[in-house]
Computed example of a mutant assay.
Amino acid sequence: MSDDNVCWQSVDYEGFEIHVSTRPKEPVRPGEVKPARYTYIGYVCHPGANAALPGHTVPFHADGEDVFATPPDAHDEAVQVGRSIIDGTHPDLSVLSLVTSGV
Rank of each mutant, 00 (worst) to 15 (best):
M1C: 09
S2M: 10
D3N: 14
N5S: 15
V6N: 01
C7V: 14
W8C: 03
W8K: 00
Q9C: 06
V11L: 09
V11C: 10
D12V: 08
D12C: 07
Y13M: 02
E14L: 13
F16Y: 13
E17D: 10
E17N: 13
E17W: 06
I18S: 03
I18D: 02
I18K: 01
H19R: 12
H19Y: 11
H19L: 15
V20P: 06
T22K: 03
R23V: 07
P24W: 06
K25H: 14
V28K: 06
V28M: 10
V28Q: 06
P30M: 09
G31Y: 07
E32F: 15
E32I: 11
K34Y: 14
P35E: 02
A36V: 13
R37N: 14
R37S: 12
Y38A: 06
T39Q: 05
T39K: 01
T39Y: 06
Y40L: 04
I41T: 12
Y43M: 09
C45R: 15
H46P: 04
P47S: 05
P47K: 02
P47G: 03
A49P: 02
N50G: 03
N50M: 14
A51K: 09
L53Y: 04
P54R: 00
G55K: 00
G55L: 01
H56Y: 13
T57I: 15
T57C: 08
T57G: 01
T57L: 06
H61N: 07
A62S: 09
D63P: 00
D63M: 14
E65Q: 14
E65N: 10
D66G: 09
D66N: 10
F68M: 01
F68W: 05
F68G: 08
A69M: 12
T70P: 05
T70D: 01
T70R: 08
T70Y: 04
P72T: 03
P72R: 04
P72E: 00
D73Y: 00
A74L: 01
H75P: 00
H75K: 06
D76C: 07
E77F: 15
V81Y: 07
G82H: 09
R83H: 10
R83W: 08
S84H: 14
I85C: 08
I86Y: 05
I86T: 03
T89N: 01
H90V: 05
P91H: 11
P91T: 04
P91E: 06
D92L: 13
D92I: 05
L93H: 08
S94D: 08
S94P: 00
V95A: 02
L96I: 09
L96S: 13
S97G: 05
S97H: 12
V99I: 15
T100D: 04
T100G: 00
S101E: 09
G102S: 06
